[in-house]
C-alpha cells in the first residue's frame, strides 16, 4: 500500500470541523426559527448546547491540521522556530485554491462561533437579554458559514482529477449532510449528558417543562432521521455515479465495493454502524410519536448510544474517504 500524504490529523480535522460547523448551523437555525419551529420554549436551550459545542471541535480540528503541515513537523523535529508559524502564509494571500478559500472561511467561522458561544455563556442567558442582538446577528452569519465550512471539506478533496475517488461533486453534498447529522448528534449528546429537564420517562416528571424538552429532542431526532436518509441517498449517488463512469472513478470506487480493500470498513463502519443502526433506533422511538402522537420518550442511555454511533460513523466516513482517495489514482501512465 502506498504511503499517505494526509493521515489521521486531516481525517480528524475533516470530522471535527464537520461536527463544529454542523452544530453551529443547527444551533443558529434552531435559534432563528425560535418557538415557531415547533420547539416551543425549548429552542433556546438547544441553541445554547449547539453554540457552546461548536467552537470546540472547530478549534481542536484546526489545531490538528497544523500538526499535519510538514513545515510544522520539521520545525518540531529540527527545533527550527522559524518554521513553526509558517502556516501564517495561508493568511497572507487568498487565491482560488479550495484550501485558501477554506482557510479564510474556517477562520471566519471559528471567530463567529466563539462570539456566538460567548453570547450564550452566562447561565442566565435567555431570549431577549442584552446580548440578544449580537446573538441573532451571529446566528444569521452562522447558517451560511457553517454550511460553507461543511461543503468546503468536500470540495477540498473533490478538486483533483488525479484523485478519482474524491473527484465527485456528490462528495461535498455527502460531507455537508454528514456534518449536519453529526452536529445534531453532538447537540443531542450534550443534552442527554448534561440536560436537567431530561428525566427517565417512567419518572413522575411528566410536567410541562419535560414535555417541551422531549418535544424538542423529538424534533431533533426526527430531523436526524431525515438527514441520515439524505446521507444514505448521497452515498448511493456517490457510488452509483463513480461506478457508472467507466475508467478511473469506477476503478477507484471499487475499493469500497464488495471485494475491495475498504469494503468491510465502509459497509460495516459507515453504513451499518454509522447510519442504519442509529436510524433504526431513532425510528423505533420517533414513529409512535409521529403516527400515534404518543409522548416521545427515548431513554437517556439509548440516546447517548445513538449519538455515539452517529459520531463514530461520521469519523469512519472521513477515514474511509480520505484513505481510499489516496490509495487510488488514475489508471495507466
Amino acid at each position: 500500500m502506498q504511503e499517505l500524504q494526509w493521515g489521521l490529523p486531516v481525517i480528524g480535522y475533516l470530522f471535527l470541523a464537520g461536527v463544529g460547523a454542523g452544530a453551529y448551523t443547527v444551533s443558529s437555525s434552531v435559534l432563528l426559527r425560535g418557538g415557531g419551529g415547533g420547539f416551543s420554549g425549548d429552542h433556546f436551550n438547544i441553541a445554547r448546547y449547539g453554540a457552546l459545542l461548536a467552537p470546540i471541535p472547530l478549534i481542536v480540528g484546526t489545531g490538528m491540521i497544523i500538526l499535519e503541515l510538514e513545515t510544522f513537523q520539521t520545525a518540531v523535529a529540527h527545533g527550527d522556530i522559524s518554521l513553526l508559524f509558517r502556516w501564517i502564509n495561508l493568511f497572507l494571500t487568498i487565491n482560488l485554491s479550495p484550501m485558501s478559500i477554506g482557510s479564510w472561511v474556517l477562520a471566519l467561522c471559528i471567530i463567529a462561533s466563539v462570539g456566538y458561544a460567548y453570547t450564550f455563556l452566562s447561565k442566565e442567558s435567555a431570549d431577549g437579554d442584552d446580548k440578544n442582538g449580537l446573538r441573532h446577528g451571529l446566528a444569521w452569519i452562522g447558517v451560511p458559514l457553517g454550511i460553507a465550512v461543511a461543503v468546503y471539506t468536500g470540495i477540498l478533496l473533490g478538486a483533483m482529477p488525479a484523485r478519482p475517488f474524491w473527484n465527485s461533486p456528490v462528495l461535498a453534498l455527502l460531507f455537508l449532510v454528514s456534518s449536519l447529522s453529526t452536529g445534531v448528534a453532538g447537540i443531542l449528546l450534550l443534552r442527554a449528558l448534561f440536560g436537567k429537564h431530561h428525566k427517565a420517562p417512567d419518572g413522575e416528571t411528566h410536567d410541562a417543562s419535560h414535555k417541551t424538552a422531549s418535544r424538542a429532542t423529538y424534533l431533533l431526532a426526527s430531523s436526524d432521521v431525515l438527514l441520515i436518509g439524505f446521507e444514505i441517498l448521497a452515498i448511493f449517488l456517490f457510488i452509483l455515479f463513480a461506478n457508472l463512469t467507466i475508467g478511473n472513478p469506477a476503478k477507484a470506487v471499487s475499493v469500497i465495493l464488495p471485494g475491495g480493500e475498504f469494503a468491510a470498513m465502509f459497509w460495516i463502519g459507515v453504513v451499518v454502524i454509522g447510519l442504519l443502526l442509529p436510524v433504526l433506533i431513532e425510528l423505533r422511538y420517533v414513529i409512535p410519536t409521529l403516527l400515534y402522537h404518543q409522548p416521545y420518550a427515548m431513554p437517556r442511555g439509548i440516546e447517548v448510544a445513538v449519538c455515539a454511533v452517529i459520531l463514530i460513523g461520521g469519523f469512519m466516513l472521513r477515514y474511509v474517504v480520505v484513505v481510499a482517495g489516496q490509495i487510488t489514482g488514475p489508471m495507466g501512465i
Binding site: L69, F72, T74, M160, G329, P330
Partner: peptide, 16 residues
Amino acid sequence: DICIGCKYCMLACPYD
C-alpha cells in the same frame, strides 16, 4: 520560503 508543506500539491499532481 513560502511553502507551508500542506502536501495538497502532492495529492493534486497526477504524476507523483
